[in-house]
Simulated assay, not measured.
Amino acid sequence: MSKNIRTLVEAAIFAALAMALSFIPDFASWFTPSFGAVPLVLFALRRGSKYGLLAGLIWGLLHFALGKVYYLSLSQVLIEYVLAFACMGLAGFLTTPLQKALKSDQEEKALLFALVGACLATITRYILHYIAGVIFWSSYAPKGMSAEWYSFTVNGTAGILTLAFVIISIVILLRSQPQFFQPNH
């Protein structure tokens, strides 16, 4: 099997894993972290932005196939399910420096690159959710609360919790299995 086909299959598997984790029940309504972000960021750091963006896009599209879309308008769906989920692949922009640091046994530098990649992906995703919250979800804000503050508290909380889970996963995996981030095929 060619490297390209193998990586595409890997992208689909990671997207499916992310989707499976999306079925973990919400324990705090809109404030729940996105557990599916963990495998997507790890995959993007492993394979780079091209495949990471593709896996994120697949994850977003799986929401349609499995009926997990909260639809208000076409533009809202495009922002929150196509762009926002694809953004998880942005972590892959740090793959090359991460892998170079690992090859030269610079574990702390590798960790820094991985964490910056995770922050880039997660923060970008939640900025898109924030924008969608202000534009499309403002009617759900409690009476007297601005749309901006409502979207910031809901999406900010979910984003921080998501980033925390992603960071914990990166630290554990990078320290115990650094070869995960250096595929040889």
Rank of each mutant, 00 (worst) to 15 (best):
I135A: 06
F136Q: 08
A132Q: 01
Y70D: 14
A121F: 03
L72E: 14
F113G: 04
S49C: 07
A55S: 11
C87F: 14
Q76Y: 06
D105C: 01
F43C: 05
L83I: 15
T122G: 00
R125Y: 05
Y140T: 00
A114S: 11
L111D: 02
A141W: 01
G133S: 05
G144H: 10
P39M: 08
T96R: 11
I131C: 02
G92R: 15
Y140W: 03
I127P: 01
G133Y: 04
I123G: 03
S49K: 07
G117A: 07
L98E: 14
I135N: 03
G133D: 03
G52H: 06
S73C: 10
G36D: 04
P39S: 05
L161W: 13
A164P: 12
A110F: 07
G144V: 15
A44L: 06
W137E: 08
F113M: 12
L112P: 01
D105Y: 05
K50Q: 04
V69I: 15
L94T: 11
R47H: 12
G144S: 13
G133A: 07
P97M: 08
I131G: 02
C119W: 06
G159Y: 15
H129E: 07
P142F: 03
A158V: 14
V116D: 05
K68W: 11
H129N: 09
Q76G: 10
A37Q: 10
A91R: 12
E148Y: 08
G48Y: 01
A118C: 06
G60M: 11
E108C: 02
S75G: 08
W137I: 07
A101E: 08
A121P: 00
L45I: 12
N155V: 14
S104T: 03
T157M: 06
A147S: 15
Y71L: 15
W59H: 13
V134P: 02
D105N: 13
K68I: 14
V38Y: 00
A91E: 15
I123K: 03
A101F: 03
I131T: 08
L54K: 04
T122Q: 01
Y140V: 00
N155A: 14
K50W: 02
L161T: 15
A44I: 08
L83E: 08
H63S: 14
T157D: 09
L53K: 10
R47M: 06
D105R: 06
Y70S: 13
A114Q: 10
A44N: 04
R125V: 07
A147M: 05
Y70M: 12
G156D: 10
S104H: 00
S49H: 03
V154L: 11
G56P: 02
R47E: 10
L161Y: 13
F64P: 04
L90G: 03
L62I: 13
A84R: 07
T153V: 14
G60H: 06
S75E: 15
H63P: 07
A132M: 02
T162K: 08
V38P: 02
A91S: 15
M145K: 05
V38K: 00
V82Y: 08
P39T: 06
W59N: 12
F85V: 09
T124V: 01
I79S: 04
L42G: 04
L57M: 13
S138W: 00
A114W: 09
